[in-house]
Amino acid sequence: MEELYQSYKGYAFSIAYRMLGVVADAEDAVQDMFAELQHRDRSGIQNIKAYVAKGVTNRCLNMLNSARSRRETYIGEWLPEPVSEGYDGPEAAAERNDSLSYAFLVLLERLSPTERAVFVLREAFQYDYEAIAGMVGKSESNCRQIFSRAKRILQTEPSSRFPSPGYGTVTENLLVRFTAAFTAYDVGGMLELLGEHPVLVADGGGREVHTILRPMTGRRGVTALLTSRRVMHYLREWKHSYGMLNGEPALIFTVQGEVRAALCLSADRSGESIQNLYLLMDPAKLSRITMPPELPQS
């Protein structure tokens, strides 16, 4: 059992994290699945990897259904919890692709729990529809329809809450340029960096931290917010470092070594402009961020 756990815990976590967007919940789903596996007869399991995927997926579906009502009463916007580079361990290296990016996780919030499960299993883990049908308790044809519907949903025009489809990865250079404009209150520099329809979303943890309650959209509004000397001025007073969150460069703010905020960005299709900005200030979603070596400052 210990060998199975060491072999598949990273894989199970990589599924659970994409399903739930919360590290502690993903860990609970994985632990619960392995606890059940330990007490059952495993001689009849022909494909242990598929069994692990099914077990953790079903637990995540239950957790997502119960979480939806809580998120509806959440004060402000709810954003997924970012993970530091390598948090899920070397076992999940094969699954570290675009489906781990922070913007992708935010996009998945558009989907229902079942749509999310089918889409993640198909898109991120390349399971065929027959296998997915057995995991989510639907017919194969139904799973095909669910996946097509989920894909259409994710390809629709952006709303005030979700990022635009077709995002690109933010480069280290783009992040450094953004930081320079942000810290200098540089309106012109910020306008040069923002895409055509930028969206800024902040998550303070419901009641935990006072921050922006509603998404800010549009170049004028986002620029005004980011260059205001009254709003978010405290971010400029904190030390900032460049780290890797969800496999991409991000800006991390600390006070005496304690992470107080993290800013994840996504680029537009060209990769040259910033399209979406996600400011995390919920202490519960920052506690697991480790501080890796900093990226180059220039």
Rank of each mutant, 00 (worst) to 15 (best):
D186S: 05
N142L: 05
A117Y: 00
I75L: 12
P215F: 08
R59C: 07
S160N: 09
N65D: 12
N246S: 07
I274A: 01
G76P: 02
W78R: 13
S112G: 07
G221E: 13
S148A: 15
N58R: 15
A250E: 12
P283S: 12
E95A: 09
N173E: 15
T171S: 15
N276C: 02
Q155H: 10
A124K: 08
Y234S: 09
G166P: 05
T179L: 06
P283W: 12
A180I: 14
L108Y: 05
V30K: 01
Y278C: 00
Q38M: 14
V209C: 06
R230W: 09
E77W: 07
N58E: 15
S159M: 10
E115Y: 07
A150D: 09
P292T: 09
S148E: 15
S164V: 00
S164A: 13
A93R: 14
A92V: 03
G271D: 02
Y129I: 07
H197C: 13
E192W: 02
D268E: 15
G44F: 11
R40T: 14
T183D: 10
R269Y: 10
I132S: 04
G205V: 05
K239V: 11
V222D: 01
I289S: 03
Y129V: 08
A181H: 06
T57W: 03
D282A: 15
T254Q: 14
